[in-house]
Simulated scan of single mutants.
Amino acid sequence: MSTSAAAVHGLSEPSPWVRDWAHLVETGGAVLDVASGAGRHARFFASRGHPVTAIDRDPAALDLLRDAPLVTPLVADLEGAAWPLPADAKFAAVVVTNYLHRPLFESLLQALAPGGVLVYETFAQGNESVGKPSNPAFLLAPGELLERVRGHLRVVAFQDGYLAQPRPAYVQRICAILEAERSDDPMQAASPRCYGLAG
């Protein structure tokens, strides 16, 4: 991503999906913005009083966050190296948009603190018919996010289907919580109980 493109991405509005579920994040709780780019979501959560760790492999994009209050940029290759945070680093929210690297799912779940919220949104199968990405490696299979959190988190909302705005795309998105009373062992947390589908 060029610096100018990163700037536009970083200063654009947060995803409506992220904005809609931000109220579930513990007041003042730390947020992890994964594959943050220039940090539109990092800035959004920081504006709400959350300290944010913004991880991306693009140092030019993260440079745009150097002076952002409450934001700690972290340059890291999420696909070619080990998880860049300590095992005991826990967050009130983990946010991922427009990014998919399946081997990270376990680390994302382990990064949630008790009561922590996973807000995830990215492209799904079918997107190859309307644009990019079209590589199956970057497109979620039907219901894949539900399967990834099943037995770990309680699902608050889930959508899987076609969206016309802001541009035609097939997307899948989830908001799910690590229930505090079951968080001693996230592998034993509640299975998904309720969700809504959008076509």
Rank of each mutant, 00 (worst) to 15 (best):
D58N: 15
A82G: 12
L104C: 01
V94P: 01
A113V: 14
L62Q: 08
V117R: 08
L118K: 04
L74F: 15
P73F: 04
D56T: 09
A76F: 10
P114W: 02
L109K: 11
P59S: 12
V71M: 02
H50S: 14
A42G: 08
E106Y: 09
V94I: 08
T97C: 06
N98M: 07
A81W: 14
F91K: 04
T72P: 03
V94C: 03
A68C: 11
L108R: 05
F44P: 00
A87K: 09
L78V: 05
R66S: 12
I55N: 04
A42F: 12
A81P: 09
L70N: 08
R66T: 11
A93E: 01
S36F: 14
L118W: 09
H101Y: 15
L62R: 05
T72S: 11
P114L: 08
V119N: 01
V75I: 00
A113W: 15
A61C: 14
G80L: 13
D88M: 09
G115V: 13
L112S: 02
L85Y: 10
L64W: 13
A76V: 06
A87S: 06
A93T: 04
A68Y: 05
A82M: 09
F44E: 00
A93F: 14
V94F: 10
W83I: 07
S107M: 05
F91C: 05
